[in-house]
Design a protein around this nucleic acid. Structure first.
Length: 419
RNA sequence: GGAGAGGUUGCCGAGUGGCUUAAGGCGCACGCCUGCUAAGCGUGUGUGGGGAAACUCACCGAGGGUUCGAAUCCCUCCCUCUCCGCCA
């Protein structure tokens, strides 16, 4: 979330930012709720101060043995009014808070204002393959090779779930290990964090309250399944003060990700393109404010490194304001080319949240100018299903097999071909 | 799941209804002193909210309650530790 004082002093900017993000939250309602909140608070606090003074008078009177009857009667009267004012103030606070949590982050100045069509390709790497044979989409190829059984997955869980078998399952595991190893080389610390988290954690990173419908939940326990390891890794340090000298902290985590994809029905639904449960390797960094935009570039490059080593052609897309997520100030998507479906597939999102998440989650560091909120960033490195798609489709051979990228062979016992 | 013990402002830790604006210690910062990184002395040192400011309010795991008044009494819940049970 944004600083309350910043909000108060930058009403126009915030209103414009919400519009640029295509967010539907009622900004005006927030401002009037906040005004109401402050008015109520002031009234309540004045009376509270009076009660505190009266209380001291009673204490002093008792000590000296004076008659406190009149003071107590007065306290009684104040106490009744106080209860009333507190209720009012609590209600006003809650109303303002609800809207406060729904206000999105403000896009960085370098972000283009506009919708998805205004996203811009920043750079492209590799050659788009032009095979001389008809490349099969991964859903056909996967079934033929016996490494994928989507029908079986649908029978037990419904559409949008995957089942990898044999070399398919092994290939994914190889990719996970490969990705983790590369990020370890890059200086990240590997962590294994919970896949179920509470409401506070989800609110801390900004998934809640806005994305409630997109999340799987266990209502009996008040827990949610993480849509990305970003949630658990960022919340590692919630409500704590980090050591300034040890920043930046760089973490990498492998985790399953659970997404209801409400409202996305009918879009990219075939095969592995959009699924309710998938695996992902995620990088998260906690950095000093002022360094986060340099870090966004290096973090993005750390993710690109995976694609380069795998030999997958990709492009880097700078998202326009309307395509940015709720909490992000700036974001690059990495898109890998998939020859079978003939599309660029989003395999990573690298975002800078500035202090938006840190303020929500209470993550500080004591710098030279006192305690400040750190900046948080994260990026996929990478999401598995679509990388699997790109490999199956780009590395296809005319005889219907798949060549294994060199860097993965050590992870597969030297295997050179699938099938 | 059962029994017990706990959760206090960075850490340790005092504190069973008003004299707590939470003692004291440690750590940390600044200064003093000392002829040289020790000892000693002094001062300061949490977070959040409101206010232009002076200043003020809240926060003792969370939420309710009792009371004129709650860190302190009562209830519910959460977490940690020990033991037992169950279990991948």
């Amino acid at each position: 979330m944004l600083d309350r004082k910043f909000l108060r002093e930058n009403r126009e900017l915030v209103t414009a930012a919400v519009a640029a993000k295509r967010d539907t939250v009622d900004v005006g309602a927030y401002y009037s709720a906040d005004g109401e909140r402050r008015a109520c608070l002031q009234e309540f606090e004045e009376l509270q101060a009076e009660a505190n003074r009266a209380n001291k008078a009673i204490a002093a009177g008792r000590k000296s043995g004076a008659d406190t009857g009149a003071d107590i009667a007065r306290m009684k009267e104040i106490s009744v009014r106080l209860k009333d004012l507190r209720q009012q103030a609590d209600a006003a606070e809650a109303a303002a808070e609800t809207l406060y949590l729904r206000l999105p982050n403000v896009p960085h100045a370098s972000v283009r204002t506009g919708g998805e069509q205004d996203n811009t390709v920043v750079r492209t790497w590799g050659e788009i393959p032009a095979p001389a044979f008809a490349v099969k989409p991964h859903w056909d190829l996967g079934a033929e090779l016996g490494i994928m059984d989507l029908e079986a997955a649908a029978r037990m869980s419904g559409s949008g779930f995957t089942l990898l078998t044999g070399q398919g399952a092994r290939l994914e595991r190889a990719l996970i290990n490969f990705m983790l190893d590369v990020h370890l080389e890059q200086g990240y610390v590997e962590v294994n964090a919970p896949y179920l988290v509470n409401r506070d954690a989800m609110t801390g990173t900004g998934q809640l309250p806005k994305m409630e419908e997109d999340m799987y939940a266990c209502p009996l326990d008040g827990l949610y399944l993480i849509p990305t390891a970003e949630v658990s890794v960022t919340n590692m340090h919630r409500q704590s003060t980090l050591d300034w000298e040890r920043l930046p902290l760089k973490y990498v985590a492998f985790s399953p990700c659970f997404r209801r994809e409400a409202g996305a029905a009918g879009k990219d639904t075939r095969g592995l393109l959009r699924v309710h449960q998938f695996h992902k390797v995620e990088m998260v960094q906690f950095v000093r404010p002022g360094t986060s935009y340099e870090t966004l570039e290096t973090l993005t490059d750390d993710a690109e490194e995976i694609l380069r080593r795998l030999g997958l052609p990709y492009r880097v897309v700078a998202l326009a304001s309307g395509d940015l997520s709720f909490a992000a100030a700036k974001c690059y998507d990495l898109e890998a080319w998939a020859a079978g479906v003939g599309k660029w597939l989003e395999v990573s999102s690298c975002s800078n949240f500035e202090d938006f998440q840190a303020r929500r989650a209470g993550i500080r560091a004591k710098g030279p100018d006192g305690a400040v909120f750190v900046h948080t960033l994260n990026g996929s490195g990478l999401a598995l299903p679509r990388v699997l798609v790109a490999i199956l489709e780009n590395y296809q051979t005319p005889d219907g097999r798949v060549r294994v990228p060199e860097v993965l062979r050590p992870y597969l016992g030297g295997l050179e071909h699938l099938g």
